[in-house]
Write a protein that binds this DNA or RNA. Structure first.
Length: 505
DNA sequence: ATGTTC
């Protein structure tokens, strides 16, 4: 295989307004690298998995510059990774992975982001598109009514502080014990829906206040709930294990996170970590990378509060699942178990976890404990991994990649290559290619609605502005993102889904 | 992403 090392200088803006140039090499058909330059403070190289079109887009903003900045973190391991959907974020790029040493590294709230455990859940049904079409409008309306959506929404549940603390420590287990689901739902969530390393007492009262009234709500921005049909199956065996057996089978896909609670946890701990920065004496090129050393009180408290926000987000998706199942029951007149509305999987996209990984390019067998920061990245563990639920252990972990509103979404399959090449991770979505403001100017609400309608997609939305901001044209091509993951071999194609109904915040 | 500017 020819892996030309043709080097090109790319310009990337940094926070300091100077234009930095990074020597970018192509090291494979879908792999690029910026070698470590210790004189500039880099402690590791950057690896970018991308095709030519997607990396060209990354070069027009701060994505790659931010990834280079992340290589300055103390204890950063092996390489900082940018996935094909990479774009600018707070300090760290979104669509990125960074692993830091468990003992000598740092933990950074910006490496997880504001929407802690923003993630995706896929539910299957035994219904086909033909059966759902006649009732689609009613179904979408029924879901829209029973799952509050939009900015600042409340009203699904109103928790006492005791109940909220149980949500924050037990996650989905609390929901199932409280009647919002069935026992086997737990088996199809990452971490079984409960991050044990959590402590509600490390979550501020302000965050709890926001969380108590928002559980079971969808939110806004790129969060959505869609009725999908199976458009194509690429891996019959894996699809079958995931409960997907035929084209036009109907599924439900939801994309939401920890709402105002997670946002507040991130804000609180960014402030705490920044205020303590002088104590840690860590020099970084961007204050948004604010971090605390492993084992410090600040890092430990953040991890425990983040764990609570993870539990909140998983529970949020469980409560929404309960209400979606109820909506289906009302519309189709049979129980959700008769409709076979089983959870396919629930996976986090914004998370920091302790995992064991190979950290040496030359010695893949040697592993050590690291803090894996996945920010806009999906875990993609292969078959045989003990973290993969028993039901899927012989095939591998389902990877859920939502597209933008009205476009395809993907189910991929975690592969062994991800462990060596991307700390067991792959891409998480389409990624914006246009600012919200530009999207509003380019795609008025009415044109987006009509475009969806002409393609047979029913839409109900809390906000017209939100629909314009999330217009399909404002996003990158999710099929290209899935292609890169597949071709690199870190997670391979199983099922392509296309929407027939959309509920938007 | 977000009680969309503490």
């Amino acid at each position: 295989m020819s892996s030309s090392r043709a080097s090109s200088e790319i310009a990337t803006r940094t926070n300091s307004r100077t234009v930095e140039k990074y020597p970018l090499s192509r090291v494979g058909p879908f792999e690029f690298r910026i070698e470590r330059d210790a004189r500039k403070g880099m402690r590791a190289p950057v690896t970018i998995y991308s095709n030519d079109a997607l990396i060209a887009k990354m070069q027009t903003d701060r994505t790659i510059g931010q990834a280079v900045n992340v290589t300055h973190l103390p204890g950063v391991q092996k390489h900082v990774i940018v996935l094909p959907d990479g774009h600018e974020g707070y300090g760290f790029p979104i669509g990125g992975v960074a692993a830091t040493d468990f003992e000598t590294g740092v933990i950074s709230p910006g490496g997880v982001g504001y929407d802690i455990n923003c993630g995706v859940r896929l539910i299957r049904t035994h219904l086909t598109e033909k059966e759902v079409r006649p009732k689609l409008k009613e179904l979408i309306h029924e879901i829209f009514r029973s799952v509050p959506s939009g900015l600042g929404n409340t009203g699904a549940l109103n928790l006492s502080s005791g109940q909220l603390d149980l949500v924050l420590s037990e996650g989905v287990k609390w929901a199932v014990d409280s009647g919002y689901g069935v026992q086997k739902d737990l088996e199809f969530c990452e971490e079984n829906g409960t991050m044990k390393h959590s402590d509600p007492s490390k979550v501020s009262n302000e965050a709890k206040k926001r969380g108590a009234v928002s559980l079971g709500t969808l939110g806004s921005g790129n969060h959505f709930l869609e009725i999908e049909t199976v458009n194509n199956i690429f891996d019959d065996e894996a699809a079958k294990v995931f409960g997907i057996s035929e084209r036009n089978q109907v599924c439900v896909l939801m994309h939401t996170g920890s709402r105002g609670l997670g946002h507040q946890v991130c804000s609180d701990y960014l402030r705490i970590v920044e205020a303590a920065a002088h104590i840690f004496n860590i020099s970084l090129p961007d204050r948004e990378l604010a971090c605390a050393p492993a084992g410090s009180r600040e890092a430990e408290n953040y991890r425990l509060a983040m764990g609570s926000a993870l539990n909140y987000a998983w529970t949020n998706r469980q409560i929404i699942t309960h209400n979606v199942r109820r909506a289906f029951e009302r519309v189709f007149g049979s129980s959700f178990s008769d409709l076979e509305m089983d959870l396919v999987y629930d996976v986090a996209h914004n998370i920091c976890k302790v995992e064991e990984h190979s950290v040496d390019f030359d010695n893949p067998a040697k592993k050590k404990k690291v803090f894996v920061h996945r920010k806009g990245a999906t875990r993609a563990f292969p078959k045989g991994n003990p973290a993969v639920t028993l039901q899927y252990r012989n095939v591998g972990q389902p990877v859920l990649i939502p597209g933008s509103m009205g476009t395809a979404s993907w189910v991929l399959l975690g592969q062994e290559a991800s462990m060596d090449r991307s700390f067991g991770s792959t891409a998480h979505g389409a990624g914006r290619n246009m600012s919200r403001g530009a999207a509003i100017r380019t795609y008025p609400y009415e044109s987006v609605r009509q475009d969806l309608q002409s393609r047979g997609i029913i839409l109900e939305a809390a906000s017209k502005k939100g629909v314009a901001e999330e217009a399909p044209g404002a996003y990158k091509d999710v099929d290209a993102v899935a292609d890169v993951s597949h071709n690199v071999g870190i997670a391979t194609k199983v099922v392509r889904l296309t929407p027939i109904g959309v509920v938007k915040g």
